[in-house]
Design a protein around this nucleic acid. Structure first.
Ligand code: SF4
Ligand code: SF4
Lengths: 136, 136
DNA sequence: TTTAAATACTACTAAAAGGTAGAATTAAAA
DNA sequence: TTTTAATTCTACCTTTTAGTAGTATTTAAA
């Protein structure tokens, strides 16, 4: 019941850049301030660049910057990119074939939190991380 | 954002047995009705036996049965057993060092669904699966 | 024009989760 | 007492996720 590491890292990276949106950030800086292994970070950065969250500048004095305004990148966008989302139809037990007449003891209780989580991911953008300055 | 397969299977197995609590169930039957690979199922059954959810009878005419009343086994118990729980302190981004004065855009929104999920797992017992007869 | 400092690419290794194979053990039925 | 049908044990294989290594490419500064 958790996000995968790549998603977590990606959100932290993007949030940090959103919070310091004027400069260009290079991999060394990001790796050190966010405490993410350098090689793993560059791999994620390349994925974020390819999937158009980030614009990268190569060569000396290069680095990374956001590709669009902070309020146009939702957490859901990021999670989708790393196949780490919760669908409305998702069944906790991985069955999903039951209907109203025969459901397990979790079915109804799962509806509400699932909706809240979905809404949370859809309605939160990088803009909501601005000024937050949460640790690491 | 999902349970691991072993947990899911374990819950399905225990629920099924709870629903048919008079008989002894053997691995072949469980594997076939619940559509869980036989060898994987027996592995899980042995774990469930060792962790005292299940009492097994070995030898010919052997099988499995619940070790205690259906209302004394919560879903949380099962998840704990397979290291698949959500703790109240758990942070979505795996940081968890932030406090009230500096929190990210998800922190407050995560509180409510997390509580609901925890409550759901703690308050649901195998008894709540009785008579449900959900598919597979 | 060379060098330094950055990203990108290719390919691999490590750990965890998911799953399988085969033999050993147990105990009732034949 | 032998056979059969069940669980258990040990050891392995496969897939996915996480992470690392080394080299190639790019570009601006020196
Ligand atoms: S009833 Fe339970 S098992 Fe069936 S789809 Fe709903 S949550 Fe899943
Ligand atoms: S503020 Fe965000 S990152 Fe920090 S502990 Fe809360 S949820 Fe986790």
């Amino acid at each position: 019941m958790r996000l995968n590491n790549t998603s977590k890292y990606a959100i932290r990276i993007l949030s940090y850049i959103a919070n310091n949106n004027q400069q260009l950030h290079n991999a060394k800086e990001l790796s050190e301030t966010l405490d993410i292994p350098y090689k793993f970070l560059t791999k994620i950065m390349t994925e974020l660049t390819k999937s158009n969250f980030i614009i990268s500048t190569r060569g000396r004095e290069g680095g990374y910057t956001l590709s669009r305004p902070t309020d146009e990148i939702t957490i859901m966008d990021v999670l989708q990119n790393f196949n780490d989302i919760i669908y409305q139809k998702d069944c906790l037990l991985g069955i999903g074939k039951c209907d109203g007449s025969n459901k397990c003891g979790l079915h109804d209780q799962w509806v509400k939190p699932k909706k809240l989580i979905k809404k949370m991911f859809e309605n939160t953008t990088l803009n909501d991380f601005k000024g937050s300055n949460f640790k690491i």
